[in-house]
């Protein structure tokens, strides 16, 4: 069964088309990387899946439910998706525990959970990203890598249908990036969660994802496994991109 299905999805800002009509399906449990240079439309595509942008045309189905189509737009707060932002977006006025517990306080399921149950689930998510002992800390006292783990724990706590990762490692130094890559891979293997990663770094895409979609000027240039892209690049652009990025 596919977790995500995009049908003839496109996006324009005014007269400028940033994403040409695009159709694809993602099976449950897949780890897909949207790879491409700056301005190729990969972040716009991720934000449309999240519901933060409305498509100009086409439809999006998540787990069989239509969340975007002509006349239909399910707001992001009702999509049950987790997202990790490039800038972390950790709320500095809340402690680590309060940040991670936040998504457990909203939505239909939240009302059924007792405060103690919310705390327990939040602590579990914190433990999953190896941040035990930091629960009461203010995010301002944490390093960039630790803040990114808080953002990851917050996205995982709500048990999302899909985890969206918007260049989550680009603000980290080389050592931390390698460590986080390893942990993300482990997390995917452990949870089987469908993950979509936006990146311009082919190493990150090839190491983490089992499917890589290379975008150019809002169009899919090639869609395949990392091995396929490496061994059989579909165009000169793909060959050049893989050589330089």
């Amino acid at each position: 069964m596919s977790t995500l299905a995009l049908n003839e999805l496109s996006k324009s800002f005014g007269t400028q088309q940033v994403l040409a009509p695009l159709t694809l399906e993602l099976p449950e449990g897949s780890f897909v990387a949207l790879l491409g240079a700056s301005g190729c439309g990969k972040t716009t595509l991720l934000r449309m899946i999240a519901g933060l942008e409305s498509p100009s045309a086409g439809s999006i189905r998540i787990g069989g439910e239509t969340v975007d189509a002509p006349g239909v737009h399910i707001e992001p707060e009702h999509r049950n998706l987790g997202m990790v932002f490039q800038s972390y977006a950790v709320w500095p006025h809340l402690s680590v525990l309060e940040n991670v517990r936040f998504p457990l306080e909203f939505g239909a399921r939240a009302k059924k959970r007792a405060p103690a149950e919310r705390d327990r689930l939040a602590r579990e998510a914190i433990a999953a990203v190896h941040l035990e002992g930091f629960e009461e800390q203010a995010p301002g006292r944490l390093s960039g890598g630790q803040q990114q783990r808080v953002a990851l724990a917050r996205a995982l706590a709500m048990k999302p249908r899909i985890l969206l990762l918007d260049e989550p490692l680009s603000n980290l130094d080389a050592g931390l990036r390698a460590e986080m890559r390893r942990e993300l891979k482990e997390l995917h293997q452990k949870t089987g969660l469908t993950m979509i990663l936006v990146t311009h770094d082919q190493r990150e895409a090839f190491e983490l994802a089992n499917r890589v979609i290379l975008l150019k000027d809002g169009r899919i240039e090639q869609d395949g496994t990392p091995e396929e892209l490496r061994s059989r690049p579909a165009s000169d652009y793909v060959r050049e991109f893989l050589k330089w990025h």
Binding site: H78, F102, P103
Partner: peptide, 26 residues
Amino acid sequence: DPALEEAARLSGAGVISILRRVSLPL
């Protein structure tokens, strides 16, 4: 940073909750 409010929306918070819990305290 719009991501601070967007993260709250994706966490399931509505407009008033975001204003009360995220934007205004910041």
